[in-house]
Design a protein around this nucleic acid. Structure first.
Lengths: 105, 105
DNA sequence: TAAAGTCTAGCACTTAGTGCCATAGATTAC
DNA sequence: GTAATCTATGGCACTAAGTGCTAGACTTTA
């Protein structure tokens, strides 16, 4: 069940080939919508994936939490399925998944 | 009023010079606490700073929100001071502030 | 003139996230 | 051997961040 706002970005791209051909004429300031297309899709994060991610980075829950600017207790809850990251938290986890902990340092 | 968990990372570092000298002997897997020290401090984000940040990146609220995986409405609320980003959201904004929108693409 | 993008705004609502504390199993120090 | 520290779980109460929806006004593009 993809939430509505997820498709807002996609909705912003209901421009067809006509726009694409125009991209060449855009200066860097206005080709925002096109950039949005290049966002890495965000997959859901299961408890197992989160823990695997953290252990892959060889960080304790406390340290991992510090990197994400959240509480250690929350990381524990994520890994036990008590709470489910979404929005900015999910984005941050995806970032770490893709690029490693260092990028958020 | 720095929240408690903010100092957890710092609390994890109540190791003195004795530990620091030991760092040389640590392998990469266990020098976590030391890494935590290198986290860029997170400053609070005022509405003005958020808007300045977004306009600096030349993104509409909708596109900006897409990057952060939040709703456009929330970005609007941040910029009007109706809601205050914290935790993962704040971390994400700080990241964009420091490294630009591209790093979260 | 219409269509679409941009932002504000309000309202109802859910639940993520915090704070605190107590427990217990590992490690490490002394 | 035992005290300290790190580790993680778990519970409980609570706040407010964040979502969803919708309508309005303004500006830009076609």
């Amino acid at each position: 069940m993809p939430s509505k706002h997820r498709s807002d970005a996609l909705a912003a791209i209901h421009e067809t080939a006509a726009d694409l051909h125009r991209v060449g004429g855009m200066d860097q300031k206005t080709m925002r919508k096109f950039d949005a297309l290049c966002l890495t899709p965000i997959q859901e994060m299961t408890p197992k994936k989160i823990r695997a991610l953290r252990t892959r980075e060889k960080a304790s829950q406390t340290v991992f939490a510090a990197y994400l600017n959240v509480t250690p207790g929350l990381v524990s809850k994520w890994e036990r399925g008590e709470k489910h990251p979404q929005g900015a938290s999910l984005k941050l986890l995806s970032l770490v998944d893709k690029k490693g902990l260092e990028v958020v340092a």
